[in-house]
Design a binder for these strands. Structure first.
Lengths: 175, 175, 175, 175
DNA sequence: GATGAATGAGGATTCATTCAT
DNA sequence: CATGAATGAATCCTCATTCAT
């Protein structure tokens, strides 16, 4: 792949990611192309269609999240690892990602990555329970769902009120 | 208003509500009409345009929520009242409602109703704090936001894991 | 025909005539019905369709013009008769009438009436030529066309500049 | 602008001009596109909406008429210049142009061009009066109105009966 | 016989996608 | 390879006409 092609591809991905975050899933291809500084034709050279572009963004997103999550496996205390993962999610368009996964995506990586990430988080959650920081009455697999919701709304950060409340709900009360 | 007109109007509202919940805000008028068993023309006789139809649903929704909330003001314990309100929200398309309010609606009732409902919930939350059931370190006005999120995702129920965790996060721990 | 039916019919005709004059041929049936103070259904009871209504107005119009023209036949001087006919046309929606006749009307009366009116005017014009008031080098049948145009634009009156110029063009110059 | 785009744009303009002349202002975008041999999308690439297309035609028309009129200023005899201008108008859709100017057009050029053209014609008319060819009792500004009407109906030519009559009405009789 | 609600074909417009330059 | 013009299916909306009340 030529240097300019690679540059274009990443310009498109960045623009799409930005616009998708701003205006939701309803971005037009024309707008993405304009924001990336290329013609629509170039966009379609890199991605066969709209869905492919969005799914590609989602795959990139999840791969990055997988890496970040892998880096946290085994760290102690596990509870702090969970908090770092949540913080990491803030910048990611997980709402878009979620909606794509739900609607039968072309790319098999999408559900696969989700499964893999969830498995890792479940593992970390189980460890946090053993360490006594995570409520024991919530199944570790459920922790994932809870975090998902806390994180999918825009701009969740581990230190704002809402997320704090959610995390407090998961945390084992220390008297 | 004639009997059949009333029947059609409510068929349209129901269909729109259902589809909006299923497929988000992107429902086509054609689809709503088909689901309601009427022609598009009938839609437009009852509602001047797409936006008017959706806003009308939202107003109905909020009016109903306001009624339900009013019925809970003053009941004791206030914490239980909050739980009942959350349960009530499950069936309502609050995500749609929220997005309409955000985008400069035509109908002034929409923001007005929201303000009124939030004021009542804030009042109930304050009472719950005085009664020692709601965490004192969360401002009552913030409780509204937390509940909003817990409830806007589809299918929250006060007894499912996610909502329980959120509510647990708000609840005062009894040792 | 019952009294109220007759009243409705004429209310519809009047309203249609008024609106057609104001907003051109693009009046909606709904608007005509509203202006006439009846429901659309009533409108369709009296006239099978839009075209029928408009053609009916046109027939009425031309019948009235025929009567007025007949009254002028034989009067002297014929030139003065022509001027009175022109003045009479001001209040009539002749532009609409013309456009209906051009587009293959259902009602045979329309072309028939036009032919009959034109024949009478031609006759009067020939007389005016014999009396020395109308230019001899314009065929009498052509006078009709000239008057038509002078009169079809809105508001021609025998004493406004445009019409005066046209009539002056027809008039025999008296030295 | 690419060659094919320019070709398409002018095909659209020509088709629209033709159809507007034939069937009045009520031409559908679909029909214009078909007549131009392009898809509707192409229409909308060149013109943001229906009104823009029609106004564009009108601007082109008036610009051309302005050029033609400018070329006649100062020529002698002025009366012959007026006749040439009238002849030039035959091919132009001045009726459409007039109706657009009346209805608050977006493009400011439209009224501006009209004013400019009328000023020039008024000037030529005044000269024709000084030269003794144009009736002195018609104000030069009024000449414009008279010519407008003579010309706005389809197919006026300086040598047909109607126009001749109108022009004769304006002309100073030579005995 | 009057009413106005329902219908749906038709017109304007948008946008994902294809293709000539 | 990049570009942006062309395409046409899909969507919103209007209005002449039909039909239940």
């Amino acid at each position: 792949m030529r240097a300019d092609a690679r540059r274009n591809r990443s310009a498109i991905t960045s623009a799409a990611l930005l616009l998708a975050r701003e205006r939701g899933e309803a971005v037009s291809m024309e707008d993405i192309a304009r924001a990336a500084g290329v013609g629509v034709g170039t966009l379609y050279r890199h991605f066969p269609d709209r869905r492919a572009l969005l799914e590609d963004i989602a795959v990139d997103t999840l791969r990055e999240l997988l890496d970040a999550t892998r880096a946290e496996v085994g760290r102690t205390p596990a509870w702090a690892a969970l908090l770092r993962i949540v913080d990491h999610c803030v910048a990611l368009p997980l709402a878009l990602t979620k909606s794509l996964i739900t609607s039968e995506p072309e790319r098999p990586e999408l559900p696969e990555l989700e499964v893999e990430i969830n498995a890792l988080i479940t593992k970390i959650a189980a460890k946090a329970q053993r360490e006594g920081d995570l409520r024991a009455d919530v199944p570790p697999t459920e922790v994932v769902r809870v975090l998902n919701v806390a994180v999918c709304r825009c701009g969740a950060r581990a230190d704002d009120h809402l997320t704090r409340v959610v995390l407090d709900g998961l945390h084992t009360p220390k008297n």
